[in-house]
């Protein structure tokens, strides 16, 4: 296994499958009365969060604690240089405290890559700017595989603000490695330049894609994007790209609906869809802990134990 997890794209097929299989084994644990393994006893995991994200932080915290690691939460809002301590100084501090693993969330793309050059412990990217969020992609793949029994050939449709989405980037890369067929759906303004070079298909028309979809993943769309003219109004966006009951009815019978959260109910997803039987949204949260346990176990559980 690698030392760091910075990008979903750097995982080989075997490594990705190993993480998913390990998560499957660990999943049994959560059903036991005592949800704890001694695997990482005496190891220190630091949650270094430069951006608010309670759900991701507690997910990593729960994962590390269930493996008996010591967890330190380092919440450092605001970023370097202009606002006090630099990322490098923070890194050296963590190094001095003997962090075996650092889970980093940062608003600047590539911050985890920089951190990895300054610390010896494993660095896990918990979301960097508009770049990547590899553990989200892993938990999404895990959820898909549990529901649909496979990933190969699975038709996954990702809908929404792809341009600003680290979730979309990591999913496209990982799903490509795992041989699923991904389609991105968004207005042209919310698709990155050169998206045609990505290992996926692209469409502007949600309705034409839904009948050929096994998994539909809705991305959060921030209303503020409207002010930068990415779309004219929230109402128009919703009319064209929201997953509502009528659109959900176009999906094949066993298709599932996913969302990485937090949701904007009513904007990109209708409440009745979010709460429907097809929705795996709450389950994704539970799977997040399991998959992150697998990642911590595989990155930290080896050599230095």
């Amino acid at each position: 296994m690698k030392r760091d997890l910075l990008s979903a794209g750097e995982l080989s097929r075997d490594e990705a499958v190993l993480i998913l299989d390990t998560a499957e084994e660990l999943a049994g644990l959560t059903e036991r009365p005592i949800k704890k393994l001694p695997t990482l006893r005496g190891r220190t995991v630091v949650n270094l969060f430069f951006e608010d994200s309670t759900r991701t932080r507690i997910s990593f915290e729960a994962a590390a604690k269930r493996l008996s690691a010591d967890v330190l939460n380092f919440s450092a809002k605001g970023s370097s240089v202009s606002k006090g301590e630099s990322l490098k100084d923070t890194a050296l501090t963590l190094e001095a405290m003997g962090a075996d693993g650092v889970v980093i969330r940062h608003s600047a793309s590539g911050a985890p890559h920089r951190l990895a050059t300054w610390v010896r412990g494993s660095v896990i990217n918990a979301g960097d700017g508009a770049h990547e969020h590899p553990t989200q992609a892993l938990l999404d793949a895990f959820t898909m595989r549990r529901h649909l029994g496979r990933l190969e050939g699975l038709r996954v449709t990702i809908v929404g603000d792809v341009l600003h989405s680290r979730v979309a980037r990591s999913n496209v890369l990982l799903l490509s490695t795992l041989a699923a067929e991904t389609t991105l759906v968004a207005p042209p303004t919310l698709l990155p330049v050169a998206v045609e070079t990505w290992p996926c298909a692209v469409s502007y028309d949600l309705d034409s894609v839904l009948p050929k979809t096994d998994v539909v993943m809705m991305l959060r769309v921030q209303a503020e994007r409207m002010n930068a003219s990415y779309f004219p109004t929230v109402r128009e966006y919703s009319r064209r790209y929201r997953l509502d009951a009528a659109r959900m009815a176009q999906l094949p019978d066993d298709a599932i609906v996913m969302h990485p959260g937090p949701m904007n109910r009513g904007v990109e997803i209708a409440a009745e869809v979010a709460d429907s039987a097809r929705s795996t949204i709450v389950e994704q949260v539970a799977n997040g802990v399991t998959v992150r346990m697998a990642v911590l176990y595989l990155l930290l559980g080896g050599a230095k134990a």
Partner: peptide, 11 residues
């Protein structure tokens, strides 16, 4: 040095 030893966006 310190203006370049930073995350890309801040440098």
């Amino acid at each position: 040095l310190e203006d370049k030893e930073a995350e890309w966006q801040a440098a």
